[in-house]
Amino acid sequence: MSVAACLLLYSFALAMLAPRLLVRLTHAGAAPRLGVAAWLAAIGSVVGSWVVATGFLVTELVRDWAEPRQAILSTCFAQLRAVAAGRYGVAVQGGLFLLSGVAAMVVAVLVARLGRSLLRARATTCEYARMARLAGRHDPALGAVVLDVPERAAYCVAGRPSTIVLTRGALAALDERHVDAVLAHERAHLSGHHHLLLALTRGLAAILPRIDLVTTGAAEIARLLEMCADDTAARAHGRRTVLHALLTLSGAAPVPAGALGASGVGVLARAERLAAPPEPASRWRIRLLLGTTAALVAGGPLLAGGLIAAGLSLCGPMTS
Results as ranks from 00 to 15, higher is better:
A295P: 04
V102M: 11
A153R: 14
S250I: 06
S117I: 00
Y10H: 12
R202V: 00
G86D: 05
Y88Q: 14
V145I: 10
V242C: 04
T125L: 01
A144D: 00
L183N: 08
G159W: 00
R24D: 11
W65L: 14
A234D: 13
A15G: 15
R283I: 09
G55I: 01
A281S: 11
G169C: 02
G251V: 00
S117E: 00
R160N: 11
L208G: 01
A206N: 02
V51H: 00
D230P: 02
G316A: 08
V92S: 12
L7W: 07
A4V: 02
G48I: 02
A262Y: 07
A218I: 02
L197M: 12
T241I: 09
R24L: 12
P301H: 00
W284Q: 15
A234H: 00
R63K: 10
R24A: 14
V165E: 09
L9V: 10
T232S: 14
V179A: 13
I164D: 10
R177N: 14
P68S: 09
L197W: 02
D139I: 01
A104M: 11
P161G: 01
A294G: 05
L40S: 00
R168W: 03
A71Y: 04
F77E: 13
T201Y: 04
T293H: 13
L247E: 15
T26W: 07
G95P: 05
A78Y: 10
A234C: 07
F56L: 13
F56M: 12
R283G: 09
D64F: 15
A222W: 02
T215C: 04
V179N: 11
V149W: 06
P32R: 08
G238Y: 01
T293A: 14
G48T: 02
R287M: 10
G251M: 09
A53M: 04
V267R: 11
P209S: 05
M1R: 12
L183W: 04
A281D: 09
M131E: 14
S320H: 12
L312H: 09
V106H: 06
I164F: 03
A206I: 04
T59I: 11
A31W: 09
G251A: 04
V36P: 06
R235M: 06
G94P: 04
A132N: 08
H195E: 11
V92W: 04
L114H: 06
L288G: 15
V90A: 15
L171T: 08
G143W: 00
I164V: 15
Y155Q: 05
V3Y: 14
A121W: 03
I221A: 05
A295E: 05
R273M: 06
G29S: 03
A206C: 00
R283A: 08
E279C: 08
L197Y: 03
G305N: 09
M131H: 12
L73N: 13
T124S: 12
G143E: 10
V149S: 08
L312R: 14
Y155N: 02
P140C: 00
L8P: 10
V149D: 07
L274M: 02
V145N: 01
G266Q: 04
L7T: 06
S263R: 10
S313G: 15
V145A: 02
L166T: 06
T167P: 07
A66H: 12
